[in-house]
Design a binder for these strands. Structure first.
Length: 118
DNA sequence: AGGGTGACGATCA
DNA sequence: ATGATCGCCACCC
């Protein structure tokens, strides 16, 4: 059952987002990104718009993609071109029990980014 | 049982 | 950055 997946998705707070892969992993399916997608489509009443593809890219097509984007912006999520500004909104799961903060070294952001094609 | 598909992801060209 | 491939996993003919 995708119970674990459902649960993981529901843990993502408003104004934040996560990815299929991350959700899958958090739910105990390290390679189940597709399962997450399937679950999102099947189950209802879930904050489906908060789940994105790797890198914060919207994987939906057509009008649904726009819908998702609007919903996210409506929640205060900002975009960087075509994808969500994960830097600011990615929600990190904690193994609920294990080392919370986990290891993220806060890489030095250096100065400005180089370029980027819209 | 067999084959195709998709709200994915990582790699390589 | 874009497009093609391959690997994964569950569902649907």
């Amino acid at each position: 059952m995708s119970n674990r997946i459902i649960a993981a998705i529901q843990r993502v707070p408003r104004g934040y987002v996560s990815t299929y892969g991350a959700i899958a992993k958090a739910a105990g399916y390290p390679r189940g990104a597709r399962l997450v997608a399937r679950t999102l489509r099947a189950a209802g009443g879930l904050p489906w718009h908060r789940i994105l593809g790797a890198g914060g890219e919207i994987k939906l097509r057509g009008h649904s993609a726009l819908d998702q984007r609007l919903r996210l912006e409506m929640e205060g999520v900002t975009f960087r071109g075509r994808r969500v500004n994960m830097k600011l909104h990615e929600y990190k799961f904690s193994k609920s029990g294990k080392t919370a903060g986990s290891g993220r070294k806060v890489l030095p952001a250096k100065h400005g980014r180089k370029r980027q094609a819209r």
